[in-house]
Write a protein that binds this DNA or RNA. Structure first.
Lengths: 230, 230
DNA sequence: TAGTGTGAATTTCTTCACAGCG
DNA sequence: CGCTGTGAAGAAATTCACACTA
């Protein structure tokens, strides 16, 4: 499914940025923004690493995929690097998004300031419940899910967020795809089936807790909980 | 996905289960639950893989870390495997949790049925705002964040969820750790510093969108096309 | 001198392919 | 036969360590 047509060598240019690196770029971006707010002009890989919660070698390696943007003995120019990463991430313009499912999570997402701050504009909200349709949230009126195709076309939406219950997710995903959405962020605790050319990322809140639970259960020390033994 | 899980002291005996495998166990669990609800007694690695959104070889390899639980020519016993994974994940008992930060996200989390369904009990809610303290959410009264230590001790809480704004996250994390929390799920868009023996996983909603943005920006234009879902 | 950039080594994860068992 | 379980191969990601340079 992934046509990787590039090889690994210290390539200065070219766009085969490892997936793991891509997933860290937003962290660097966030850190750089903070540094800029503090008025700092340069930053070392070490400092940036600390702020982003990774290690310095990783920062340098990650940034090297774009070419040489640092200055030896000094570090990286905060503003320059910021702009560069933002451009790499496609955040030089706002992305209009639609959120489907206005339950607790959908409402929280609609009100979440972090999206708008970071380049995403909630252009439309949809739900299936007549109780919710017509009400306003964060300055956007909730539309009937049947309006999806129309809204997506009208606002040129490419990114959809699914915050519906699991049983409704597949239907909504299909509607989104039919309407022209090509990237989906799925919060519903279920796998959605879409064509290969649609990007899907999933976030399952309970899954994250379950992973914590795994390690928590096995920690040697600590005050205790009943350990499940066969 | 994001989230680096720092190594902790004292991993137990035997071959430890790869982190990547652990992160998939909840997906298998979810799929098995569905199969059980449908009344199916056995499942092949192929079918399970499809439901969980991974490939069959991975399923078999993952499950093999626990020993041999399948039957050749038949598949895996749904109920048995379900119980086994649940035990591995430490979900044979409920985990009492505390959520800090009762903004939109915190409220959504507190009301989110998925937690309770999957072994997590919201035992306490805290916030700093006098407006919110004393009000009830999902059957739990919101307490003053100063009560954290008391609540954690009272309910024997080991898992904390941070849903505060970024600027408050570090302080809350520290309070949680001081109170005895040893695992933290951090939704605040910032890195929190805690002792090495505290487990932290982070979920940053905007980061997920930014990753989508990266791939979305590059679709069509280039030769290569990359799926964003691991 | 402080700190980048990067080959190379290492570790971790994924996929293959097939032996072996019910 | 059908499907698991798993060594071995392959790919990806991480880390090391140091040459190099502003």
């Amino acid at each position: 499914m992934a046509g990787t047509l590039d090889e690994m060598a210290g390539m200065p240019q070219g766009h085969s940025i490892p997936e793991a690196t891509v997933s860290r770029l937003p962290l660097y971006l966030r850190s750089l923004q903070e540094l800029l707010d503090e008025g700092l002009a340069t930053v070392s890989s070490e400092r940036l690493a600390e702020m982003a919660g990774v290690n310095a070698a990783k920062v340098r390696k990650d940034l090297s995929y774009f070419g040489s943007y640092g200055t030896r003995g000094v570090g990286y120019d905060v503003e320059y690097l910021l702009l560069h990463i933002r451009r790499e991430l496609g955040l030089t313009h706002d992305w209009p998004c639609v959120i489907a499912g206005m339950g607790n999570l959908g409402q929280a997402l609609a009100n979440y300031g972090g999206f708008h701050e970071r380049g995403f504009k909630i252009a439309a909200l949809v739900d299936a419940s007549p109780d919710k349709i017509g009400t306003e949230l964060g300055g956007v009126v909730i539309s009937n899910v049947d309006e999806l195709a129309h809204l997506v076309a009208q606002h040129k939406i490419r990114i959809g967020v699914i915050a519906t219950p699991a049983h409704a997710a597949q239907d909504v995903a299909q509607r989104m795809v039919d309407a022209g959405v090509t990237s989906i962020l799925n919060f519903a605790p279920t796998v959605i089936n879409v064509p290969d050319d649609i990007l899907v990322r999933k976030v399952d809140l309970a899954v994250e807790l379950q992973i914590l639970s795994f390690y928590q259960e096995r920690r040697g020390t600590g005050t205790d909980f009943v350990s499940a033994t066969p």
